[in-house]
Design a protein around this nucleic acid. Structure first.
Lengths: 341, 341
DNA sequence: ATGAAAGCGCTAACAG
DNA sequence: CTGTTAGCGCTTTCAT
């Protein structure tokens, strides 16, 4: 592996000059530069970023802490799309991504901030971790520049990007309301997700605007899990026969609920309306296609990366960006039966 | 940021001793080690892996060169599943992943091997690049340990993992044959994918075993693209009205073909049988559910990472691993109409 | 415009 | 068992 030392020797100059020439400094004679560049190419030189990072104290790498990089989340391609967005934004720059896997045993051994500090990442993007994750606090409190996805924490070095969850949920529920539904149940995620809190908030607001009292027994957590949602939907449907529609905090859960509804021998949307959240790929392919609140997951990642990089370069103050959601009415929402008369 | 120097000072020993103590060498007094560990914790020490990598000449990072980390490939979650597998395997080790984005302009500026050399990755996993990619050759020829996914190149430092594409395709076509089909078309990927060559091979073998002559006009490339496949299927169906079934080299293309068939006013599988390849998530959710050849994409990534890491640790000779595929008969394949009589 | 020298944080002979 | 020394490849004062 050739080093600048080799180039220096070959070109008959000092390493200093080589370094300067290669890095495009102005204070180097054009002839020398030409020569050095030629020698560098000749020797097939590649700079050692490790050495550079060490001395410059920055690595030009961005750490990625995502929870959903596992087999289970391939159905819900949320993580992947976020990742794609991040990748896209990063690929326009000279940063590279390092993926910290938070799947395994390693997580307990090493904390996030340890991971980041050891690898000397310049900044980190965090997605998909629960708000009660003990290490979240740690990262946020560390001085590593960081942008959170869907966790609205903001401080000196931490920004976040999320979507308008309250409004999104509101749109979904309002849609149901406008169709004539009055008994609207909700399958939420879990209490350790900000998005769940916010979507519940939106649900409540929509109801209240329609003059309907909030009934807590109509809201159950499905942990963002397809099977769990299917299970709790069973309970719900049994307990509350008067429910005519269900709002799910994720499409994946809606898919589970859909199965349960069919098991009850009911038809969607004729007997029961169903609306999800996320707009995952599957949503438009299932039968009937799922009405949902669409959020731009790619952009979530893209904006996060953009934000982080800008922060890294210009050392801006922390910021937040809130993306808009969009209601997609497809085939699982319709007027309630009794309304049709 | 505390360094071993700080610890050395605080503990009243030399940096050497600190280094040895922290790295679990045996030749250090237990009392001293305890002390050093205590001080390290006290000072909230994190080793600087950059410095370590520099001196040890290995970075404990694995480079990942994947082409499909973009918005377009979220439907076909192939890339994601491979990535998950890699991540899973890697997360059991002390390696980290660095993602090289090959999406952008950067690709033309810097070659793969440059990327790898600059970041000093210990090895690299390559997936989803075309066999005519000029940089593929370069990586393979470089001395960077490397494992290829679905590209059967093997040499001193390069191994590969793939699936039994010939057999897989054979199984699909034989299934069609057994149902009674005789005119079986194929929508293939493109010539710069080994898997396409192999699947075509399997197609031919199956036909020949059934005593059917290979008709080249029945095979068209769809570039692994949904829309392209839809388009060429249109041509095919118009030209060859006698075709009773189509074998697609990817599920995504099968989805496109399915649309085209429906546009022709024909029904699957009554009028036309259709079988895909990959077993992507969507396949089991579309209506009718797609018959396909299932390959374990997660395992593809998992095995690749395992292979690479073993090579890195034990410096084995290169190897190959061939995963088995599985025929999944679902709802798009049936006996041809005239056969039912 | 160029070079000598110091040092980033760490590991690894080599002594003792 | 521990310390001294050198050096990984690079950037960066500070001279010249």
């Amino acid at each position: 592996m050739t080093t600048i030392k080799d180039i220096a020797k070959e070109a008959g100059v000092s390493v200093t000059t080589v370094s300067r020439a290669l890095n495009g400094y102005s204070d180097v004679n054009e002839t020398t530069r030409k020569k050095i560049l030629k020698v560098a190419k000749q020797l097939n030189y590649s700079p050692n970023t490790l050495a550079r990072s060490l001395v410059m104290n920055k690595s030009k790498t961005i750490g990625l802490l995502v929870s959903g990089l596992n087999r289970a989340s391939s159905k819900d391609n949320f993580t992947f799309e976020v990742l794609s967005g991040v990748n896209q934004a990063v690929s326009d720059t000279d940063y590279d991504l390092v993926l910290f896997s938070t799947t395994s045993t390693k997580q307990r051994e090493k904390t996030y901030s340890q991971l980041c500090k050891e690898r000397r990442v310049d900044g980190v993007i965090i997605q998909g971790i629960r708000t009660d994750d003990p290490y979240l606090k740690e990262v946020v409190e560390s001085d590593i520049p960081c942008v959170l996805i869907d966790i609205p924490i903001q401080s000196d070095r931490v920004s976040f990007v999320t979507t308008d969850n309250v409004i999104g949920a509101q749109k979904a529920v309002t849609h149901l309301l406008e169709l004539g539904h009055r008994r609207i149940a909700m399958i939420n995620g879990h209490e350790f997700a900000f998005v769940s809190q916010e979507r519940l908030e939106g649900y409540k607001i929509a109801l209240s605007q329609a003059g309907i009292e909030y009934d807590p027994s109509l809201v159950i957590n499905g942990d963002f899990d397809e099977d769990k949602a299917e299970e709790v939907a069973g309970l719900l449907l049994k307990e509350h026969q008067d429910v005519t529609s269900i709002f799910c905090a994720s499409d994946l859960m809606a898919l589970g609920v859909l199965k349960q509804i069919q098991r009850f021998g009911k038809k969607v949307p004729e007997d029961l309306s169903l609306i999800g959240y996320d707009d995952i790929i599957l949503s438009s392919y299932v039968t009937p296609p799922l009405s949902t609140v669409s959020q731009n997951k790619f952009k979530l990642g893209y904006e996060a990366a953009k934000l982080l990089i800008k922060d890294l370069e210009d050392s801006q103050e922390s910021k937040k960006v809130i993306l808009k959601t969009e209601l997609k009415i497809r085939g699982t929402t319709a007027q309630p039966r009794d309304n049709k008369l």
